[in-house]
Design a protein around this nucleic acid. Structure first.
Length: 407
DNA sequence: GGCTGACGGACTCG
DNA sequence: TCACGAGTCCGTCAGCC
């Protein structure tokens, strides 16, 4: 392709995304219904399944095609001025013109460029995993004296909590919960538990990051070409699919190996990783103008260590690893609207201790406390929050009586 | 009895 | 029940032919 369009283009999907903050990306059908009260036809087959416009069935009669296409074009023609007006009324024009619109082209280039993946590296790793999986399977069956589908939470729950008589700490809508948090809590109560955790991790690597990734390598380019979604998330972040390159494993040692399969296109290229350090916390320091927080960053302090010292009332030199980890969880939790309950669960201390951490934190960083309170009050009054660049997030649930929704 | 789609639960990441 | 934001895979179940 490589076609450069010089006309001034406006993307209706993205304009609609900014205007209808919090609803997620609305399709043309929905935008038409909401903004111009026009019902239009989607590209659907007789069963109602939506097609991609690039993949229309060859036997679709031309007259049908023309009718659908015409209706959609007419909707776009009428939506454009309407959305332009709405962008302007909400103070979103600059964000649209200077950030979102130029990004369309950038993302297109990134998708087209792709990233090279070595299938042999993945296959080799897959063979190792497969051998290990067979062994784990045997060991698990032998330990519980029964064969079952280890991947079925339902069957696993029955084995663990009925047959082996372990105590189920929590339930899901459909039965026993067997997620990693539950299993980790039971790890020392039966030798089968660690094996199940390993089995799960391996299965995920095999199915999602080996088998599936191999099929997504384009045979002509030897690269994977993801699809970036610019109009999906409620916060304005990007997401990506087929494959989702934003969740390639890194935290576990085994998972990390998947990354070895991503390689430079040729000997003239290198892969470079660049990442902001503590960006959320720096933004918090900037917005809140908290003196202590700002100074800590300006002095180049280790912010978690510094926070630990403040919360525990000791000099930085006396901060232990555990104290730093707890402070890290507090710093992190502040970004999401922390609660004593959530923090306690997260760092494994009592509710009371967690509460006292939070109190100490807000005493030290009183500017952050004031800022957060002010932000919530403003959002309560306007029903929305805005980012530095003016992006809107509607927050209707702020008035909810349901604690969970309100949080 | 087999297929399909929706949904829940599990995992992955920042 | 509680952290924020995403996407994918598998098992399960209901509905359909």
């Amino acid at each position: 392709m490589g076609i450069v369009v010089k006309a001034n283009l406006e993307d209706i999907l993205i304009a609609g995304y900014l205007v209808n903050a919090g609803l997620g990306g609305l399709e043309l059908e929905e935008l038409s219904a909401v903004h111009i009260q026009k019902t239009i036809q989607a590209w659907r087959n007789e069963k109602g399944k939506v097609f991609s416009v690039f993949n229309l069935p060859p036997d679709l009669p031309a007259i049908v095609l023309a009718k659908i296409a015409g209706g959609r074009l007419e909707a776009m023609r009428r939506l454009q001025p309407k959305l332009e007006e709405l962008l302007s009324a909400s103070g979103l024009t600059e964000l649209f013109q200077t950030v979102e619109s130029p990004l369309v082209q950038t993302l297109f280039q990134m998708e087209r460029e792709g990233i090279k993946v070595n299938p042999e590296t993945l296959r080799e790793f897959g063979r190792v995993l497969k051998t290990r999986q067979s062994q784990l399977e045997k060991d698990i069956y032998s330990l519980v004296q029964e064969e079952f589908n280890i991947s079925s939470p339902k069957q696993l729950g029955i084995i663990l909590f009925e047959k082996l008589g372990l105590k189920a700490p929590k339930k899901t809508k459909t039965g026993y919960s067997t997620d990693a948090e539950v299993l980790e809590g039971l790890a020392d109560q039966h030798p089968v538990i660690p094996l199940i955790l390993e089995y799960r991790q391996n299965t995920k690597l095999q199915t999602t990051y080996i088998d599936s990734l191999i099929t997504l390598i384009n045979p002509r380019s030897s690269r994977v070409h993801t699809t970036f979604n610019q109009a999906v998330t409620t916060t304005g972040r990007l997401s990506c699919t087929d494959p989702n390159l934003q969740n390639i494993p890194i935290r576990s040692e085994e998972g990390r190996l998947i990354r070895c399969a991503f390689i430079p296109a040729d000997e003239r290229h290198r892969l470079l990783a660049a990442d902001y350090s503590q960006i959320e916390l720096r933004v918090m320091a900037h917005f809140s103008q908290d003196q202590a927080y700002k100074e800590a960053f300006l002095r180049g302090e280790d912010i978690h260590k510094y926070t630990a010292a403040a919360v525990h009332g000791v000099p930085v030199s006396q901060v232990t690893k555990e104290m730093r980890n707890q402070a890290k969880a507090v710093n992190f939790g502040i970004i999401y609207g922390i609660s004593g309950f959530g923090l306690a669960r997260n760092i494994g201390v009592s509710r009371k201790e967690a509460d006292s951490f939070i109190t100490a934190y807000f005493e030290k960083y009183s500017g952050v406390k004031t800022y957060v309170e002010q932000l919530i009050e403003e959002a309560r009054q306007t029903g929305e929050a805005r980012t530095l660049l003016g992006r809107i997030r509607k927050l209707p649930d702020l008035h909810s009586r349901n604690f969970s929704l309100r949080s």
